[in-house]
């Protein structure tokens, strides 16, 4: 949807409540999904959702319109989600950041079963969908946020780099690692489905 035709930045800056409600209507679902994929917890995702729109409401005056409103909202939401994850991690492990380490062996291909041949309904079961969600949670945070923005929310490489304040080259590298990491995880899961069908 072309947001310029839907949302008036001028009205937002003038404090038009109805216009802000339209902004919430348009983007709350996407912000909530991003938060849910990042945090895997509905209550945490709701916190991120509320904080994102609260901060947007408080700082709309300073929004200069250099990016789209959606990119701006995604940036606030991504920061909120990452901050919450870091806060939770420091509470649990007193600053140990090992859970976000990015090891080469996590994305170097190790499983070569061809599971593309599985029938389509195999990918649509509740269990398979859960496996897809679980695989996202196994990604290190810095890869997860890039993957969610690019491949779940459908942002371009350029938009993703603007949201995260990273170079496009860095986004591409992290996206590749995230995709290969997920391929590995799913390959170990679907390998079992292939074996079950053969037995």
């Amino acid at each position: 949807m072309d947001e310029a035709s839907v949302i008036s930045l001028e009205a937002l800056k003038q404090g038009d409540r109805q216009e802000f409600a339209r902004l919430v209507d348009l983007y709350a679902g996407q912000v909530y999904r991003l938060a849910l994929k990042m945090l895997n917890d509905p209550l945490d995702a709701e916190d991120v959702l509320q904080n994102t729109f609260l901060k947007a409401l408080q700082s709309i005056d300073t929004f200069e319109g250099r990016s789209s409103l959606s990119t701006w909202l995604y940036r606030i939401a991504a920061n909120e989600a990452l901050m919450l994850l870091r806060r939770q991690r420091s509470e649990v492990s007193l600053g140990d950041s090992s859970s976000d380490d990015d090891h080469d062996d996590e994305y170097t291909p190790r499983e070569f079963t061809d599971w593309c041949c599985l029938p389509e309904e195999e990918f649509l079961t509740a269990e398979s969908r859960q496996a897809l969600d679980d695989a996202i949670q196994k990604l290190p945070e810095k890869l997860r946020i890039v993957f969610v923005l690019r491949d779940i929310e459908g942002l371009s490489i350029e938009e993703t780099s603007r949201v995260l304040g990273l170079s496009e080259a860095a986004v591409k590298t992290r996206l590749l690692r995230a995709r290969l990491h997920l391929r590995n995880t799913l390959s170990f899961y679907f390998r079992e489905r292939v074996a079950e069908r053969k037995s």
């Binding site: 599971w115 993957f147 491949d151 995709r179 391929r183 799913l186």
Partner: peptide, 12 residues
């Protein structure tokens, strides 16, 4: 690897 990577992205 290419086929299953493509399938992975497709599923998401």
């Amino acid at each position: 690897v290419v086929d299953t990577l493509r399938k992975t992205i497709y599923l998401y």
